[in-house]
Design a protein around this nucleic acid. Structure first.
Lengths: 337, 337
DNA sequence: TTGAAAGCGCTAACAA
DNA sequence: TTGTTAGCGCTTTCAA
């Protein structure tokens, strides 16, 4: 069964394609009666406009791309919901692209957008991404890009972030107040904006409390779970092992719990842990996991709203350039008493 | 900066657009020398073909849609990786659409595909979906659809599933062998294929062991977490409360653990639990969670491969009609000793 | 109020 | 081996 197109509708009604087109877009040029006839037939024949023709013609696709490192992560999976919530009422389609934390993947995806495949892009960069050329190139083609969470500071586009420095500072201070003196930080990447800010927040808190910040306690994890486990275990077997951990990476939660179990270290007596995470099951872990809970939904929503504003040519005001939505420190069993 | 198109390349080289087009698609008609000149210029000018023009012309988009209930679920987030793995080497793009467990949402998305927006669809239906008209309509437009995991049996298209009946049967039998006599089943929906098969597997196991299958122990959860919590709690407060639970829904893991905690029921002594789940943190829960682990990656991969085969007109053999990949019962602390 | 015609960028018959 | 031409489905001047 072939698809009905505008020409067929026109033929059926003894009208011209242009009249039909106008009627369907509710143009003032067309009489109410004609509009009604046309709409009725379109409905009856189940006419569905060809998206490609429209996009080719009008250079608007009503698609926005969401480019993410991965989706098996509570932050991103929730952020997607926020994005959809913001964008659906405006009639945009959300298309999710996964980089799998690879810079090459990310660059290839953005490259593809240069031909106008999408109207705009929401981007959270991969852990490997250090340069911005691929984003710049896209911007030169006048495809709007809005960063969220993992941003590239060098690129002059709107950024929606959380208060990574402050929340890491708060989490670290909390650990110190609980009596921790040797605090370790586990990051995801040396280059990622969020990881560096969190590390800095952690370091600042240590400094403000005149505590040492040891090189060996500031670690960056790999993509390999086994290796991460070894790394964490080694960290905890050191004669002067840390008594507090700030984990910047949700995935490390399981690793730390397991390592503690194997080494018979008890949380929170022997060691305290706070993890950046939006995992729902944080509460049912034993002990329950203290988290820095990021405003995932709201960040996605804000990012999408900013992009839409841009797409609709409503000039972005200075305050859109950087939106910071605070995270919340949820003290639970792994760091509380 | 405008985008370069084929005409500009042609003008620059004093060639015709069609020559350029052919060269770029490596046609045998074009001399090696010309091909090289064209390719070099395309590279230099960073030529990127307009996807819409190609799709409009050739009625192929090289996009495949993945329509999912949600993405904040370990099964789906892993399945996506399997799909991408299968499809990337074939040059297809994966576009993820979310129904949020809503039939209306699902129908709207599929409707949109009728105009050829995507070449094919991988579908796992929403919990609300009971009818197949929306899928049928799409098939009539000759858009291939392949089901995975949550299938609609009535639609004659390939289905990639796991052995829901058998694995529920195995899990239930396991609970019985551990001494459970009053086993409850928690489902996601009354209509969902997978839920019904799992329930049936559970019931069959009970019957085969001459155990009663009580109405009040076969529950269906809602979308509201608070309500689910109440439901589970009520279940566990019954004078003849169950001593074993098969949970068909990953999200209920936290609910059950919390309810047990509140009611001071200990797993596995007081009650045993097996959950259909691919959550990585199953191992670090206290007690660690026994799971029916679904072959999420392989199911996604198989579904995508089947779809690609169909798209490439390689006739689907009878064995492609239904692929069953077995799940694995992982006995851990919540049901073991 | 309606229609004719051109063109978005690309490809494939067909001609040269 | 290369070029000419038509057309995918739609919108939008401009003319009737």
């Amino acid at each position: 069964m072939k698809n009905v197109n505008i020409r067929e509708l026109a033929r059926e009604l003894n009208l011209s394609p242009s009249t039909v087109s106008k009627a369907l877009r509710d143009s003032y040029e067309i009489s109410a009666a004609t509009k009604e006839r046309i709409r009725a037939l379109a409905e009856k024949l189940n006419y569905i406009p060809n998206a490609y023709a429209g996009s080719l013609r009008g250079r608007k696709s009503k698609n926005i791309a969401v480019v993410l490192p991965e989706v098996a992560d509570s932050f991103f999976s929730i952020a997607i919901n926020g994005i959809e919530a913001a964008v659906k009422p405006k009639g945009y389609h959300v298309i999710i692209y996964l980089t799998h934390e690879s810079y090459a993947g990310e660059a290839a995806i953005l490259k593809d957008f240069q031909s106008g495949r999408v109207d705009g892009v929401l981007l959270s960069v991969s852990r490997e991404t250090t340069t911005a050329a691929h984003v710049q190139e896209l911007l030169e083609k006048e495809v709007p890009v809005v960063f969220f969470d993992r941003v590239l500071e060098a690129v002059p586009v709107p950024k929606i972030v959380t208060d990574d420095f402050e929340s890491a500072y708060r989490a670290t201070t909390h650990l110190i107040e609980q009596g921790c003196r040797r605090i370790a930080y586990l990051g995801l990447s040396e280059s990622l904006s969020i990881c560096n800010r969190r590390r800095e927040g952690c370091e600042q808190a240590l400094e403000d409390h005149s505590l040492p910040c040891l090189r060996r306690n500031m670690l960056t994890c790999s993509t390999d779970a086994t290796q991460n486990f070894r790394m964490v275990k080694k960290l905890l077997q050191h004669p002067e092992r840390p008594d507090g951990i700030i984990a910047s990476v949700e995935k490390l939660t399981a690793t730390v719990y397991q390592a503690c179990q194997q080494l018979a270290l008890h949380m929170p007596e022997d060691i305290r842990l706070v993890c950046f995470s939006n995992l729902e099951i944080a509460t049912i872990l034993q002990p329950s996991l203290s988290t820095v809970t990021q405003p995932a939904f709201d960040m996605g929503k804000a990012a999408a709203e900013t992009l839409v504003k841009w797409l609709e040519k409503r000039t972005l005001t200075a305050k859109d350039v950087r939106i910071v939505i605070p995270s919340e420190l949820m003290v639970r069993g792994s760091s509380g008493k």
